[in-house]
Nucleic acid binder design. Sequence first.
DNA 1: CGACTTTTTGAGTCTAGTCAAAACATGTGG
DNA 2: CCACATGTTTTGACTAGACTCAAAAAGTCG
Lengths: 251, 251
Amino acid sequence: MVRPKSPLRLDWVDPTVCSLDYRLKIIGRLPFFKHLPADAISKINDRFHDHEVSTDERIYFEGDEAEYLYLVAMGKVKLVRNTDSRREVLLDILRGGEYFGTLTVFGRSIHTETAIAQTDCCILQISSESFETVLTEYPDVTRKVLEAVSQRLTESQEIVKQLSAYTVEQRIASALLRLAGKLGEARGQGVLIQLPFSRQDLAAMTGSTTETVSRVMSRFGEAGMVKSGRKWVTIMDMPRLEKLAEKGAVN
Amino acid sequence: MVRPKSPLRLDWVDPTVCSLDYRLKIIGRLPFFKHLPADAISKINDRFHDHEVSTDERIYFEGDEAEYLYLVAMGKVKLVRNTDSRREVLLDILRGGEYFGTLTVFGRSIHTETAIAQTDCCILQISSESFETVLTEYPDVTRKVLEAVSQRLTESQEIVKQLSAYTVEQRIASALLRLAGKLGEARGQGVLIQLPFSRQDLAAMTGSTTETVSRVMSRFGEAGMVKSGRKWVTIMDMPRLEKLAEKGAVN
DNA sequence: CGACTTTTTGAGTCTAGTCAAAACATGTGG
DNA sequence: CCACATGTTTTGACTAGACTCAAAAAGTCG
């Protein structure tokens, strides 16, 4: 059978994307800034610096001192934690408009995860001190940030639950659904996950191994629930995947 | 062999513990209020209501609307998530002075976990609206809350990592260490975990089963690392447990 | 077209889960 | 204070899901 070639279309980092206009747009869309007037956004923007990173480059390492708060302007970033063994655990994948880094309000602290560019990216960063100043100037922002962090806590706890109680098959199904919800794009019959990610990554997200992920994906493929290839996946039958993620076996 | 009888000494909920004095002490010690002057604490205290709950009683359920923020004044509270199957996942155990409930700043939201009294407790609660008012009146508090939540996110991610990459043995070892760090009390040679918790609870914390936990605990017991009985555990050899939690096998 | 990476497949093993039953601890009421 | 009822923990035998190691197959890129 002729597999379709990779249908991914990556957003290339074009030098213009970190233009002033684009920066203002990204910053102004952040959940914790979007309620602010344009002039405030503009002033906040001045506190950010941008830089480009290419695929697989590390933005910071677990254990580094947390001196900045980061913002994905363009591209995708993954957050991983390393274990003593060579296995890595993938905590989250972020797209344009999401923040990352450690929220160091007062005092110093340390990054608890490593941030890796999953694609070529444009990253905005603001120093902890500047961010504190912004929080002081715009008290509402602090609340919004609080909401955003609370949200992530809830998501993380959901993952704890899944890892505790679900089979690998269920975990893979829900990881795919989560990614599709976040990064999915309609493509013909199915939903393409707009992100180059390998079996390796999927294994790191679900606490499994590449081999097992491969086997499960093959099963999903045979059952017509997904189509996949080297570093891409399209979900063909969401409802069935959802059922499987919740109930276990497909009946 | 004659096992020591349960060495747990529970703090009984004495009607006096929720006295004004005690309430002020608990509220004033909260990480996000402790920098405030006494009169502010006193005013904040007026917004809290207290009530007692007995062991195993539910304080709220997963899915309930989040209308209050809660505070453990006395006793221990566990947070669990239910899965479709009868298995429950234990997310955290809280002691006096810790907060729980969903931080609903603006808008309504829903509890994502169930809160159960692990011992008889005295609980303080404040309505979301009141809490918002407090946040508005004392902007510093919002930042402190933000730090507290960030901290929990980090802890939750640590658990994700453990569940993803460690064996049951390692997870049990680190769950014990975590509990000891939080609720431990020196007792002769060892550290007693001051909390009545069953193999069931430990299984729910580590994504395992009572039988497996029992087997692992027996092994730990034979190796002289812990002593345990019905609903109690004393850690006898921290360093060895720590080594096991990190590296795997004990050499 | 190669060289390289990623994915798939296979065989063997082991950790941890399931089911079932016995042993033990705890609190109660006689 | 003992015997019983109840809930908890332990033990045993069996099973299965998922991991490991190893090697082949398929994509991708220069």
